[in-house]
Amino acid sequence: MSKKSVVVTALCHSFIEIVKYLNARLVFLPNFAISMRIVLSIVIVFCLYSGANCQYLDLAKVEYTVAPGDDANFSYNSKRILFNVPFRIHDKAYFFAGVDYTATNINLREEMDSYDKSDTDNFTEIDLNLTYTSMMNNDWRFGVQITPSVNSNLQDGLMSQDLLMSGVIVFVKDKKNSDSAKKPFRIIAGLSYSTNSRRPIPFPFISYYRKFHRKWSYNVGAPVSNVQYHISEKHRIKVYAEGDGFNAHIQNGVIVNEMDRANRLRMLLILTGLRYEYKVSKHIESYLNVTRTVFSDVQLRDDMENVFVPAIDNLMHYRIGLRCKI
């Protein structure tokens, strides 16, 4: 069987399984309501005021996202490919080098918008991830990541304004699979800095995972918060909330309302909904997200000042992917 067939088979199997298990387990979903109010509040605070860009380290990922916006004035889709190559320094230390590529298409359909949308339809983001990690005392792991990136419509090649820089310093204590922990847990804490954020200053973040029952666990913090139901060893379903978005340079700018020039487009979405995960093997996982935006913000900016903020409707948001994780 070809590699492409294996991927397609895994993703199709994921879709079949989510339908089957949702039908069998739907009775559990109303119990999430109270927890999700807490989860969503925490995520909104992190996403709106921090812009933290931390993420867990995947060795590879292929992902497709679509927000069709059939009944809304806004839609977008993105395609993402990521890989990280590990290099062993010694027994307890590794260096990772990788590339994260995302192509995004945006469609704003508001009739009142008086600017040329052809320059704000397609954006490309290319991140170069350079990561170092090593073990410390008491089962703590230290990590630092530097990420120079390009985020632009690339209308006239590469410009200096297309370049962004971000970095993360992180400490991790992972007892998710430890036999010594009565209730498995994981703590991730650190500092994040990004010129892609609303406020380009170092910002502290924390993420805490706890499995409090054989079938139940939760994760609170940035960038994702969720409550999980472990259907079986291979199947999990989550009710979760997270932030999504980007900050891209518009080369040559666009004239808005015949008087203002915008040279950046910034998008921020707060999403909440369901995520289904199917464990293909020990390190390979497929997933399907079905969410809805509860907060949508698109801004055309002149550096740090808003030039135009179109009114954006909330809409459904779908994501399917395959990841290879450590």
Rank of each mutant, 00 (worst) to 15 (best):
S5L: 10
V8P: 03
T9Q: 14
L11P: 01
L11K: 10
E17A: 12
K20S: 12
V27C: 06
V27W: 06
L29F: 05
P30Y: 02
P30A: 09
M36I: 03
V39F: 08
S41P: 00
V43G: 06
V45D: 14
S50Q: 05
Q55V: 10
Q55L: 08
Y56G: 13
Y56E: 15
L59Y: 10
L59M: 07
Y64E: 01
V66Y: 12
V66F: 08
G69Q: 04
N73Q: 02
N73I: 06
F74K: 13
N77P: 01
K79N: 15
L82S: 12
F96K: 15
G98V: 10
G98R: 14
V99K: 10
V99H: 10
D100V: 06
T104Y: 07
N105I: 09
N105D: 11
N107F: 06
L108T: 13
L108I: 11
L108V: 08
R109I: 08
S114Y: 07
K117N: 07
D119W: 04
D119A: 11
T120N: 07
F123D: 11
E125G: 06
D127T: 13
L128Q: 07
L128C: 03
L128E: 06
N129D: 05
N129Q: 05
L130I: 10
T131R: 10
T131F: 04
Y132C: 08
M136N: 15
N137I: 08
D139S: 13
W140G: 02
W140Q: 00
R141W: 04
Q145M: 04
T147V: 08
T147H: 01
G167M: 01
V168G: 00
I169P: 02
I169Y: 04
V172D: 05
K175F: 06
D179T: 13
D179K: 14
D179G: 12
K182V: 09
K183R: 15
K183W: 11
R186G: 06
R186K: 12
R199G: 09
P202N: 02
P202I: 08
F203G: 12
F203E: 14
F205P: 01
F205S: 02
I206A: 15
I206T: 15
I206R: 13
Y209G: 02
Y209E: 01
R210M: 10
K211S: 04
F212V: 05
F212K: 05
H213K: 14
K215M: 10
K215C: 08
N219R: 15
G221H: 02
P223D: 00
S225R: 00
E233K: 05
E233I: 01
R236E: 09
R236M: 05
K238A: 11
Y240L: 02
E242F: 00
G243W: 00
N247K: 05
A248Y: 02
G253Q: 01
V254Y: 01
V256Y: 01
M259R: 14
R261N: 10
R261M: 11
R261Y: 08
R266H: 12
T272W: 02
G273Q: 11
L274T: 15
K282N: 13
I284A: 15
F295M: 15
V298K: 04
R301G: 03
R301K: 04
R301V: 05
D302Q: 08
E305Y: 08
V309E: 12
P310V: 00
I312N: 03
N314V: 04
Y318D: 06
R319C: 11
C324K: 14
